[in-house]
Protein backbone atom coordinates (compact mmCIF):
# COMPACT_ATOMS: atom_id res chain seq x y z
CA UNK A 1 0.00 0.00 0.00
CA UNK A 2 1.28 3.48 -0.75
CA UNK A 3 1.89 6.27 1.74
CA UNK A 4 -0.75 8.38 -0.02
CA UNK A 5 -3.46 5.73 0.43
CA UNK A 6 -2.54 5.51 4.11
CA UNK A 7 -2.65 9.28 4.46
CA UNK A 8 -6.12 9.20 2.91
CA UNK A 9 -7.21 6.93 5.76
CA UNK A 10 -5.52 8.65 8.69
CA UNK A 11 -5.84 12.31 7.74
CA UNK A 12 -9.58 12.44 8.59
CA UNK A 13 -8.93 10.97 12.06
CA UNK A 14 -5.73 12.89 12.81
CA UNK A 15 -7.40 15.34 15.20
CA UNK A 16 -8.69 12.51 17.39
CA UNK A 17 -5.17 11.86 18.65
CA UNK A 18 -3.16 14.14 20.89
CA UNK A 19 0.12 12.82 19.54
CA UNK A 20 0.79 12.26 15.84
CA UNK A 21 2.73 9.14 16.79
CA UNK A 22 -0.52 7.49 17.92
CA UNK A 23 -1.68 7.32 14.30
CA UNK A 24 0.76 4.50 13.75
CA UNK A 25 -1.76 1.83 14.87
CA UNK A 26 -4.72 2.88 12.69
CA UNK A 27 -2.24 3.27 9.83
CA UNK A 28 -0.80 -0.22 10.32
CA UNK A 29 -4.27 -1.77 10.65
CA UNK A 30 -5.40 -0.10 7.45
CA UNK A 31 -2.25 -0.99 5.52
CA UNK A 32 -2.82 -4.62 6.46
CA UNK A 33 -6.31 -4.73 4.92
CA UNK A 34 -4.81 -4.88 1.42
CA UNK A 35 -2.95 -8.18 1.54
CA UNK A 36 -3.79 -9.40 5.03
CA UNK A 37 -0.22 -8.86 6.13
CA UNK A 38 2.50 -6.20 6.04
CA UNK A 39 5.67 -6.39 4.01
CA UNK A 40 8.74 -4.14 4.22
CA UNK A 41 7.32 -1.69 1.67
CA UNK A 42 4.12 -1.36 3.74
CA UNK A 43 6.15 -0.55 6.87
CA UNK A 44 8.11 2.07 4.94
CA UNK A 45 4.87 3.58 3.62
CA UNK A 46 3.39 3.75 7.12
CA UNK A 47 6.58 5.38 8.39
CA UNK A 48 6.40 7.96 5.63
CA UNK A 49 2.71 8.66 6.22
CA UNK A 50 3.07 9.00 10.00
CA UNK A 51 6.49 10.66 9.96
CA UNK A 52 8.46 8.01 11.86
CA UNK A 53 11.43 5.86 10.95
CA UNK A 54 10.74 2.48 9.40
CA UNK A 55 12.67 0.87 12.24
CA UNK A 56 10.30 2.39 14.78
CA UNK A 57 7.26 1.27 12.77
CA UNK A 58 8.70 -2.23 12.73
CA UNK A 59 9.20 -2.22 16.50
CA UNK A 60 5.50 -1.39 16.94
CA UNK A 61 4.35 -3.88 14.30
CA UNK A 62 6.27 -6.75 15.90
CA UNK A 63 4.79 -5.94 19.33
CA UNK A 64 1.20 -6.77 18.30
CA UNK A 65 0.06 -10.33 17.58
CA UNK A 66 -2.64 -9.14 15.19
CA UNK A 67 -0.24 -7.31 12.91
CA UNK A 68 1.19 -9.91 10.55
CA UNK A 69 4.60 -9.64 8.95
CA UNK A 70 4.17 -12.95 7.08
CA UNK A 71 1.33 -14.01 4.73
CA UNK A 72 -1.60 -15.66 6.54
CA UNK A 73 -4.50 -17.81 5.37
CA UNK A 74 -7.57 -16.03 4.01
CA UNK A 75 -9.34 -16.41 7.37
CA UNK A 76 -7.53 -16.20 10.71
CA UNK A 77 -8.94 -18.15 13.66
CA UNK A 78 -7.64 -17.04 17.05
CA UNK A 79 -8.23 -19.50 19.89
CA UNK A 80 -8.04 -18.07 23.40
CA UNK A 81 -5.60 -19.96 25.63
CA UNK A 82 -5.88 -17.97 28.85
CA UNK A 83 -6.99 -19.22 32.23
CA UNK A 84 -10.78 -19.53 31.89
CA UNK A 85 -10.59 -21.06 28.45
CA UNK A 86 -7.83 -23.41 29.51
CA UNK A 87 -9.97 -24.66 32.44
CA UNK A 88 -12.88 -25.16 30.04
CA UNK A 89 -10.97 -27.13 27.40
CA UNK A 90 -9.22 -24.79 24.96
CA UNK A 91 -6.37 -27.29 24.59
CA UNK A 92 -8.82 -29.83 23.13
CA UNK A 93 -10.45 -27.15 20.99
CA UNK A 94 -7.09 -26.02 19.60
CA UNK A 95 -5.78 -29.51 18.93
CA UNK A 96 -9.10 -30.49 17.31
CA UNK A 97 -8.96 -27.50 14.96
CA UNK A 98 -5.29 -27.90 14.08
CA UNK A 99 -5.71 -31.68 13.70
CA UNK A 100 -8.63 -31.27 11.37
CA UNK A 101 -6.74 -28.74 9.22
CA UNK A 102 -3.50 -30.73 9.31
CA UNK A 103 -1.53 -28.07 11.18
CA UNK A 104 1.10 -28.24 13.97
CA UNK A 105 -0.54 -28.44 17.39
CA UNK A 106 0.36 -24.82 18.29
CA UNK A 107 -1.15 -23.39 15.11
CA UNK A 108 -0.07 -22.36 11.63
CA UNK A 109 -1.41 -21.82 8.12
CA UNK A 110 -2.92 -24.40 5.79
CA UNK A 111 -1.13 -25.22 2.55
CA UNK A 112 -4.14 -24.19 0.45
CA UNK A 113 -3.99 -20.69 1.97
CA UNK A 114 -7.51 -20.97 3.38
CA UNK A 115 -6.87 -20.80 7.14
CA UNK A 116 -4.49 -19.63 9.79
CA UNK A 117 -5.05 -20.91 13.33
CA UNK A 118 -3.24 -19.10 16.14
CA UNK A 119 -3.27 -18.85 19.91
CA UNK A 120 -4.67 -15.68 21.45
CA UNK A 121 -4.43 -14.07 24.84
CA UNK A 122 -7.67 -13.33 26.71
CA UNK A 123 -10.49 -12.34 24.34
CA UNK A 124 -12.73 -11.17 27.19
CA UNK A 125 -15.30 -13.94 26.90
CA UNK A 126 -14.37 -15.81 30.07
CA UNK A 127 -18.04 -16.42 30.86
CA UNK A 128 -18.41 -18.23 27.54
CA UNK A 129 -15.16 -20.20 27.54
CA UNK A 130 -13.67 -21.75 25.54
CA UNK A 131 -13.93 -19.04 22.91
CA UNK A 132 -12.40 -18.07 19.62
CA UNK A 133 -12.50 -15.25 17.12
CA UNK A 134 -12.46 -15.24 13.31
CA UNK A 135 -10.50 -12.28 11.88
CA UNK A 136 -11.83 -9.30 13.88
CA UNK A 137 -15.41 -10.62 14.00
CA UNK A 138 -17.52 -11.17 17.10
CA UNK A 139 -15.91 -13.55 19.58
CA UNK A 140 -17.75 -16.89 19.67
CA UNK A 141 -18.21 -19.28 22.57
CA UNK A 142 -18.60 -21.58 24.28
CA UNK A 143 -17.25 -23.64 21.40
CA UNK A 144 -17.79 -27.39 21.41
CA UNK A 145 -15.75 -29.53 19.04
CA UNK A 146 -18.88 -29.91 16.86
CA UNK A 147 -19.25 -26.12 16.80
CA UNK A 148 -15.65 -25.92 15.58
CA UNK A 149 -16.35 -28.37 12.74
CA UNK A 150 -19.44 -26.40 11.72
CA UNK A 151 -17.46 -23.15 11.81
CA UNK A 152 -14.82 -24.52 9.43
CA UNK A 153 -17.53 -25.68 6.99
CA UNK A 154 -19.29 -22.31 7.17
CA UNK A 155 -16.06 -20.41 6.56
CA UNK A 156 -15.15 -22.64 3.60
CA UNK A 157 -18.53 -21.84 2.03
CA UNK A 158 -18.36 -18.09 2.78
CA UNK A 159 -16.94 -15.63 0.24
CA UNK A 160 -13.53 -14.09 0.96
CA UNK A 161 -13.99 -10.60 2.45
CA UNK A 162 -12.93 -7.78 0.11
CA UNK A 163 -11.00 -5.98 2.82
CA UNK A 164 -8.99 -8.14 5.14
CA UNK A 165 -9.55 -6.56 8.57
CA UNK A 166 -7.62 -8.78 10.92
Amino acid sequence: MTADEIRGHIDPIRDQFAEGRSLILPALKFAQTEKGYLDGADLEAVGEAVGLTTAYVESVATFYDRLYLQPTGRRVISVCINLSCMLRGCDELLSHLTGRLGLPSDGGSTDDGAFTVQQAQCLGYCDRAPCLQVDVGETQGPMSLDDADALIEALRAAPTPDRLWR
Binding site: L52, T53, A55, Y56, E58, S59, T62, F63, Y64
Partner: peptide, 9 residues
Protein backbone atom coordinates in the same frame (compact mmCIF):
# COMPACT_ATOMS: atom_id res chain seq x y z
CA UNK B 1 19.55 7.92 13.91
CA UNK B 2 16.42 5.86 14.62
CA UNK B 3 18.09 2.59 13.67
CA UNK B 4 17.89 0.47 16.82
CA UNK B 5 14.56 -0.90 18.00
CA UNK B 6 13.11 -3.51 20.32
CA UNK B 7 11.37 -6.20 18.28
CA UNK B 8 8.59 -8.44 19.55
CA UNK B 9 7.24 -8.39 23.10
Amino acid sequence: DGHLIMRER
